[in-house]
Every structure is written in C-alpha cells, then in structure tokens.
Design a protein around this nucleic acid. Structure first.
Length: 749
DNA sequence: GGCTCTTGTCATCCC
DNA sequence: TCGGGATGACAAGAG
C-alpha cells in the first residue's frame, strides 16, 4: 500500500510539475470539499478538534484549520470554523493570519524550534507566536525533548487524545505519508508524534527516520530557519525557505506539490493549480528579505480567498435588508448626487473603500476604518446572525413615522451608517459641515422648516405615544376626569341626553313628562333608561343605597308602580324621602313638612309634576287658603327648579366632557397634520434633489458650438410650460425668477 | 374644623 | 303677563 502510494505520488508529482510549468491551475482543494477535509487540515495534522474548542485562539490557528484528519468531530469543527470565519470576517482587515500559519507547522528537523509546534492546538500560545515570526531574533530557543513538548501541550490543554483505535489502516498510512512529507520539508515526525502513537507505527517511524536523515534540511541554526519560514498560501503550512540554490527552491515546490497531490487523488480534466501555489516558487524570498515581507507577500493568498467574500456577503445581507425597508430613494439619490458610476454593486455599496458613497458618511467611515475593534464590533452580532437578528436590530433605524425620526437618528450613528446624508434627516442636519453638500443651500428652507416642525412637535409634546394614549382614553370613554361611574348618570346617557335634554326639559308640559308625572317624577330626559331612573331619583330624593338598588332592577318608569315602596312614594309624593324612612319625619323635605303642616290634601309629586292645566284643575277641586295656595305654588316652583338645576348640572357636565373630547380630537388632528407636513416636506426635499441633480446632469452635457461646456454663471436652464427645457442667459433667467417671486406677493396684496 | 362634593334653593333671565 | 326652563350663586349636608 505504501509503495503503491509512493509510486502514485511520484507520478502525480511529475504530472503536477508539468501542469505547473505550463501554467495550468490545479485547485486541489476543490476535490476535497465533499469527502475529505481541506487540504490544509490534512497536511497540518492534529488540531484543536481533539481539545476543547477555544475560539478566541482559533484565530491564531491558521484560520481555524489544523484539525487532525482523523478527527471524529469534523462536522462540529467545520461548523465552528464557519461561524468563526464569519466572526472573523468582521475584522479581517486587521488580522494577519498568515503569520500564525507560518508558525504552526514548521519545525526544525531536530525539533529544536520550540515555537514550531506541531498542531494547531499549539497555536494557543499564538500571541507570542506572532511576535516570534515577525521578529527575527525571537522564537528560537533551546530544543526540547518530545516529552517536554508533550508536557507543554498538556499544560496548554491542547494535547490531542490518544489516537483511537477506530482508525483505519488507510488513514494511518495516509498520515504516515504526510508525516514523511513534512519531514522532507523539515518538519520532523515528532511534530505529530504524540506519546500515544500506536505501536504499530514504529516500523514506519524507523523508515521515516531514515528518510529524515536524507531529506531534512541540514541544520543551519534555528535562527536562520526562523527567519526563512515560508508559508504555503494554500495549505497554510510553513516550511523553511532557506534552500541553497534555485534547485532547492524547485525541490521545495515539488515537495509541496507532492503533498497536495497526495491528498488529491481524483484529478480532474479542468483541474488547475491555484495561482498562489504555482507561484510559490517565485514567492520564495531570498535570504535578504525580512520575514515580515514574506508574510506580507503571502498573506493575501490566504485572506483574499475566502474572508473578503464573506464580508461582502455580510454587507450584501445588510444592504438587502435596508433596501427592503426604505431605501428605494436612497439608491437613486446616491448615484445621482455622488455621480457614482453604476457598476459593481459590491464595489458600489459594500466596499469599504473610502471613496464609495456609503463611506462618505462619517459614521460608516469610523466604523469601517477607524474602529474595527470598536464601532464595527457594535453590530457584529447582528452580522453574525443575519438575517434575522440584523433585521430586528436595524428596524429601529427605519423611520416608521416622522416623530420617531428625530430620536432614532439622533441617538445612533448607525443611521448615518446605513442612510445617505440626504435622507438621514436630522442627524445629518447637524453633521453638515463635514460633508460638502453638492446641492448647496437648495434645501435649507425645507430643512429648517422641518426642524422647526420637529421642535414644535417636541415642545407641544405631540408624539405617537401620546397620541395613542389619547386615543385609548377617548375610545375607552374611561379617560374622564370626572368619575362618571359614580355619577347618577353614566357618560353615555349624559352624552345622549345632551342634545335632547333641552327639548325634553323645556317642554315641561309635553306628553312624556306629563305622563310620567303621574308616577311622581319629571325627567331630565325620558329617552334613556338611566335617565329615567335619574328622574325617579331626582323627583323623590332617594338615598344612594336605594338609588343603587333601583339602578340594578329598575329599567322602565312604567314599572315603578310594580315596586311597592315606589308606589308608595309615588302616591305619597314625598320629596327627598326614602321609602324605608317614611315613618320618620327626618327623611322628609322641608316642603314635605310644610305641606303636612299646612294639611295640603295632595302629594308634592302631584304639585310639582302635574301639567299646569291639570294642576289648576286640581287646585280648583279643593277649597284652599291663600297660605296653602302660596305653599303649593312654592313647592311646585322649587320642585321644578330643582329638577331644572339637576338637568342644568348634567348639561354642564356634558358640555365639559364634550369640550374635553373636542380638544383631544383637535390635538390628534394637529399631530396628524404635523406628521403629514413633515412627510410632505421630506418628499419635497427629495424631489428638489432629483430635479437639481437632473439639472446639473443636463447642463453639464450641453456644449456650445466649440464643444465647450456652458458656464453656469452665464447660462441657465429654464423649464418651459410645455415640458421643454431651454438654455437661456443667466440674466434673463434671474429676471424671470424675480417676476415669478413678485406674482405671489401681488396676489397677497 | 376645614375642605370638597352634592344637592337644594333662590334670583334672574329668557322663551 | 304668566308659566316654566336655564343658570349662576348660595347654603346645607355628608364624607
């Protein structure tokens, strides 16, 4: 098996060399996506997949690559790596991951470079590793034994568990081959050799030792090796660049290709070598180049393949959300106002280049350039969990209504991040000086007007919340300052009676009141059952307890006679007397006492409520003295005046409530009109912007007979009534403009 | 005892 | 002119 693979490897190696020489790209990683882990992972060997995932350190472990090919948790690892790549995409521009890559794999043939730790799990101390790579004098220390190395691993918690016994023989063979190849490149077997390696690999190890003596670079000092670490941009593997002579460089490239082909058995027809790999030979720096430069050269190979796309994808998601919400006008105005060529949407909208329109906003500039670790991280969680979280988070940025614009945009810089200055209402009004306005003072009036409206709205306390509260209060009829529930009449009844009270009460001799007067009550209104009850109460002066009972049981004045005590009251015509206290003179009114004292032969109820004709007829039936007649007339007058006073008070109460309701209605109308005005002003401003941009575009395209553009100071475009546009001298345009201004003034006069 | 609210009453106006 | 409704003002009672 080993010999077969070796044979295939050599053949494939030669074939790969030929392909690379003729410039054919061989993207070996594409063949590994479905079944095998990425090539880098295969080559890099064991990783933190065996260990507890430490995402804060995965950043330093070759983009998270480095999982052992025999990891039984590859799915989890890939998931974690995908999420990690999304997170890392947020600050991709600041993290030179290739430095870490160079530090992880390479190892001195004698294993003397302690920093060159074999697994990605060793990158847990990557912070120092980063410095070691860039610093030529660092990272080299006394060699350690494997035992000590393993102890370090254990201390770091990054030691992979013993290789489980469920590994197949093919897996082991593959790993051994890879080990050998790493040894060929200068990475000793001890890089991957955990003390728990299976015993059955001892033979292979001996073989490998033999190869190691032949193929490893001669030890020329750890320092030199450290200076010449070269990172494979595709695999992330590092290997010494210090190869004497160009032949060694070629050999180095061949070794790399060998490892690539080892993992790339299926060779496609359209296979092509990645440019970064094929150019590795050229990318091998000379000894005079500092290591940092190497990293700079190679880092784009790693960062440019995946993470920028991810970041662009994040921006696409963000912008798509914004477009769905409110950005229809945004795109047009962006292109017009900033003369942005309609090109690649990525470069137009999502790029972080400072010249793009979105970066003309100060907030975005700060977020994208000045503070990847600060401002940008503010919404990184949203980006990570797109699109749901981002949409929910960004929703407040959308002006749901005009009143919320001010607070929303004024409180966060994110508004400036996603809204162009033209639409970013108040926030950009205050941030004007930093951004030159291409339209000049075109919108000053509208903007000032809007600001004044906003201030007015704030001063008068109109906002959506208050309006809704007012609406709730009004709709529920519970927002009355007066406790109508304790009033003898409910609000509804009082409202309903407000219009009819005058007619009913004014026509005291009407049929309604007269018919009911027989029962001893004259109503404030006869068309409401509650008021009917009220009439009874008012007429007979019931006590509150009695009124409550009547309110529950009594619904029709005609039923009053059905109640024995009410019947008694009706016939008794007592005034302000409760049925339960009929025996007591304490509950009788003064007029009742007077009537009794004067021996009036009929009840006060009849005295009060009988129509004047019947009342006169009644009086004529009895021979009454002048004192009695005077008392009867006073009782009738006071009784009627009493009910009139009650009606009057009810009407007064109704009037107050109606006025209160009217005020609320007017306040709502005013708030609504205010919002509409703000909307109209915003629409007008956008229209002006469009017109202005079109004007400039048309004017800028005009050329005179000499092909020269017209001077804006000398010429102007005039819109004719028929829709045509004329080029006229500026002086003439100014004159016409003045005439237009005079016309409204004359009309006002 | 003072305050508030309710209710009754008076005076007045008006229809 | 009278009856009666409307209403402001006042007073008494209750809480």
């Amino acid at each position: 098996m080993l010999s077969l693979k070796k044979y295939l490897t050599e053949g494939l190696l030669q074939f790969t060399i030929l392909l690379s020489l003729i410039g054919v790209r061989v993207d070996v990683d594409t063949y590994l996506t479905s079944q095998l882990p990425p090539l880098r992972e295969i080559i890099l060997g064991p990783s933190s997949a065996y260990t507890q995932t430490q995402f804060h350190n995965l950043r330093n472990t070759l983009d998270g690559y480095g999982i052992h090919p025999k990891s039984i948790d590859l799915d989890n690892y890939f998931t974690a790596r995908r999420l990690l790549s999304q997170v890392r995409a947020l600050d991709r521009f600041q993290v030179p991951t290739t430095e870490v890559n160079a530090w992880l794999v390479h190892r001195d043939p004698e294993g003397s470079v302690s920093g060159s730790q074999p697994s990605s799990g060793l990158a847990l101390e990557s912070s120092s590793g980063l410095q070691d790579v860039t610093g030529p004098d660092n990272g080299v220390r006394e060699s350690e034994t494997e035992q000590g190395f393993s102890e370090d691993l254990e201390d770091l918690g990054a030691v992979a568990p013993p290789v489980s016994g469920d590994l197949t023989k093919e897996d082991i063979d593959l790993i051994d081959i890879l080990w050998r190849q790493d040894i060929d490149l200068g990475a000793g077997r001890e890089i991957f050799d955990y003390s728990h390696r299976q015993k059955e690999q001892d033979v292979d190890k001996e073989l490998q030792d033999g190869v190691e003596q032949e193929d490893t670079w001669p030890g020329e000092g750890e320092e030199v090796l450290a200076r010449n670490l070269l990172v494979d941009g595709e695999t992330g593997e590092s290997f010494p660049a210090q190869v004497p002579g160009g032949e060694n460089q070629t050999a180095l490239s061949l070794e790399l290709c060998l490892r690539l082909l080892e993992a790339t058995c299926p060779f496609g027809e359209n296979a092509e070598f990645p440019a970064d790999i094929s150019s590795l030979t050229e990318a091998v720096p000379s000894e005079s180049e500092p290591p940092g430069l190497q990293n700079n050269l190679l880092s784009p190979l790693l960062t440019g393949t995946e993470s920028p796309f991810d970041l662009e994808q994040q921006w696409q998601d963000l912008m798509s959300i914004m477009e769905m919400q409110a950005m229809e006008v945004n795109t047009s105005t962006n292109e017009i106002l900033y003369n942005n060529p309609p090109g690649d949407p990525l470069s137009t909208n999502y790029s972080l280049a400072p010249n793009t329109p979105i970066n003309q906003n100060v907030s975005l500039h700060q977020a994208s350039l000045g503070g990847c670790s600060q401002d940008f991280s503010l919404f990184s969680p949203e980006v990570e969990s797109l699109p749901v979280a981002s949409s929910s988070t960004l929703l407040p940025l959308v002006p749901s209504n005009s009143t919320s614009l001010n607070s929303t945009f004024g409180s966060t810089n994110l508004s400036g991040l996603f809204f162009p200055p033209q639409l970013n209402g108040t926030a950009n009004d205050t941030a004007g000086p930093e951004l030159p306005d291409p339209l000049g003072g075109l919108l000053d009036e509208a903007m000032l007007d809007e600001i004044s409206l906003m201030d007015l709205a704030i001063e008068e306390g109109f906002n959506s919340v208050q309006a809704s509260q007012l609406k709730e209060e009004f709709d529920s009829d519970s927002g009355l300052s007066l406790d109508s529930s304790h009033s003898p009449s409910s609000l509804s009844s009082s409202e309903g009676s407000s219009s009819s009270s005058s007619s009913s009460s004014s026509s005291a001799s009407s049929s309604a009141s007269s018919s009911f007067s027989e029962e001893g009550a004259v109503g404030y209104s006869s068309d409401s059952e509650t008021l009917d009850l009220e009439e009874v109460e008012g007429a007979v002066g019931y006590q509150p307890e009695y009124s409550k009972f009547c309110r529950m049981s009594y619904q029709d004045p005609s039923q009053l006679s059905c109640l024995p005590y009410l019947e008694h009251v009706g016939h008794n015509h007592t005034y302000n007397m409760a049925p339960s206290a009929l025996d007591s003179d304490k509950q009788m009114s003064r007029d009742e006492h007077r009537a009794r004292a004067m021996k009036i032969p009929f009840t006060n109820d009849k005295i009060i409520n009988l129509p004047v004709e019947e009342f006169n007829e009644l009086l004529s039936k009895y021979q009454l003295s002048e004192a009695q007649l005077s008392l009867i007339r006073d009782i009738r007058r006071r009784g009627k005046n009493k009910m009139a006073a009650q009606n009057c008070r009810k009407r007064k109460l109704d009037t107050i409530l109606n006025l209160k309701r009217d005020v609320e209605d007017l306040q709502r109308d005013k708030a609504r009109l205010l919002r509409e005005k703000v909307e109209f002003l915003r629409s007008l401003r956008q229209m002006k912007q469009k017109v202005q941009s079109l004007y400039q575009e048309v004017f800028g395209r005009l050329r005179d007979e000499n092909g020269q553009p017209y001077s804006p100071s000398q010429y102007a475009l005039q819109y004719a009534g028929d829709g045509s546009v004329l080029l006229i001298p500026r002086t003439l345009a100014d004159q016409q403009a003045r005439r237009q201004e005079r016309k409204p003034k004359d009309r006002r006069k």
